[in-house]
Computed example of a mutant assay.
Amino acid sequence: MILDLDGVLITNPSWKADRIDSDGYSEFNESCVENLNRLLTLAEFDIWLSSTRRTVKTLTEFNLIFKNRGIKKEIVGFLPEYADCINRKEEILKFIAEFKVSDFLIIDDDKSLNGLESEIKEKLILTELMKGFNSEKLKEATKKIKKL
């Protein structure tokens, strides 16, 4: 699973400062976290963080944040930071090619992902900034898992 945070688990409007949780990091939308946990029970996933936030915290710090938010699975790693990539679409394509990833879901709100070729785009759950990974997106993801 290639997972973004903003617009997926963090649903604050971009024009407002994040609400901060007791551990000093941005609050996650609780219902989006519940939906992610439900999804994680349906199939075995490794979580790879694609969020630009991956550049300011370590994997250990993010795993503690996930644990504090009640996410029942640890992050395996971050998408590498590719200097020559201009958007999320390019990062994900490079990651898939480099790591030879085949069975995966992408959960992200980045509109550049609409430009993915259909074979990869059919594994995309495109969320909306202020709705995040809501129940509608959980249903969509569940259908896609059954096809994998």
Rank of each mutant, 00 (worst) to 15 (best):
S14V: 13
E117C: 08
D46C: 04
S14E: 13
K100Q: 15
I75C: 12
F45M: 06
Y25P: 01
E44W: 04
A141L: 01
L39D: 03
K147Y: 10
L59P: 02
N68D: 09
S31E: 14
R19T: 14
F99I: 06
E140C: 06
S102P: 02
R19Y: 10
D18P: 05
S26W: 07
I96W: 04
E128G: 01
A141N: 05
K111I: 15
A141F: 01
T11C: 15
A17Y: 13
S22Q: 13
R54Y: 06
G7K: 02
D23P: 07
F133Q: 02
L39W: 01
V56K: 11
G115S: 05
I125Q: 00
E81L: 14
I71A: 03
D23S: 11
L64F: 07
F28K: 00
E91K: 10
L64K: 15
S14P: 14
F28L: 13
A141H: 05
R19D: 15
V101R: 04
N68E: 10
E140T: 07
E98N: 14
I125W: 01
I106H: 01
E119K: 14
D103N: 15
D109C: 06
N12A: 12
R69N: 04
D18S: 10
D4L: 02
M130H: 09
I107W: 02
A17L: 14
V56F: 11
K147L: 15
C85L: 11
C32A: 08
F99N: 15
L64M: 12
P13C: 10
F45Y: 12
P80D: 14
W15H: 14
I20H: 10
